[in-house]
């Protein structure tokens, strides 16, 4: 029988989350973010979090919610600052920010999940990202040594999942969710649709359930659009 990973709600899903932990959040901008886990963390009031997330949300939505309530002490991201409160906290020194190249961010997640403690990448050589890092040359090119992340919790969002934690994403909402699901010691997946095992076609599953420890159906998904761009029909 398949292992049942279902928890009843977001509150139960974040059990064990403690102050000062390092936590991953899937998503790119506001696309594919774990909205329900973020709301539950806000409610629980866990503080001093180091958040690994490509972006930092916007005022009042996404990780912006946890910034507003001062629950985040450090952000590890590739692109931030679509967010006045973020900017204010960063400039005042309340919030520590570590910016790293996006591909390095993704690979540090993947490596963590794949049992690779470190890897070499050319990204950032010759820039301030390289400060203090070991450089080695391969194929006549310089590379930086980068370390895998270590995150006790990863919060991800998928379109569909089954009770065994197998996940299917929709369109570009996959982004960091897959690699972060691999990386988390406890990976919590929230899904729009939760189905019994056997209903997902094994050929179509993006993230195998072995990477997911807890799964729940999100109560509500607002799925806000950050940059609505359209063309006219005429």
């Amino acid at each position: 029988m398949a292992i049942n990973k279902v928890v009843q709600n977001a509150q139960e899903a974040i059990e064990g989350l403690k102050d000062n932990m390092t936590v991953m959040f899937g998503g790119f901008g506001l696309c594919g973010i774990p909205e329900n886990a973020i709301a539950a963390i806000r409610e629980k009031g866990t503080k001093g979090l180091t958040c690994i997330s490509n972006n930092a949300g916007v005022d009042g939505f996404g990780l912006g919610v946890l910034l507003e309530s001062r629950q985040v002490s450090k952000m590890i991201s590739s692109y931030v600052g679509e967010n006045d409160e973020f900017e204010r906290q960063m400039l005042s020194g309340e919030l520590e920010v570590e910016l790293i190249p996006q591909g390095t961010l993704a690979e540090r997640c993947r490596a963590a999940g794949a049992g690779i403690p470190a890897f070499f990448t050319p990204a950032g050589y010759g820039t301030e990202v390289a400060l203090g890092k070991e450089v080695r040359w391969f194929n006549d090119k310089p590379h930086l040594l980068e370390l895998a992340f270590n995150a006790p919790f990863a919060f991800v969002k998928a379109d569909k999942g089954d009770t065994a934690g197998n996940l299917i994403f929709n369109a570009t909402a996959r982004n960091f969710n897959h690699a972060m699901a691999m990386a988390g010691k406890i990976t919590v997946a929230e899904v729009e649709e939760l189905v019994p095992v056997g209903e997902l076609d094994p050929n179509e599953i993006h993230t195998p359930g072995i990477f997911v420890q807890r799964i729940f159906k999100g109560e509500k998904f607002e799925k806000r659009i950050e940059q609505r761009t359209v063309r006219s029909k005429s």
Partner: peptide
């Protein structure tokens, strides 16, 4: 290209976070 008005999908964006189509 960008979607027609009313056909935007929050799950389908580009690296600039703009709604797009496939």
């Amino acid at each position: 290209p960008f979607p027609f008005e009313g056909e935007e999908d929050a799950d389908l964006i580009n690296a600039g976070k703009q709604t797009i189509t496939a």
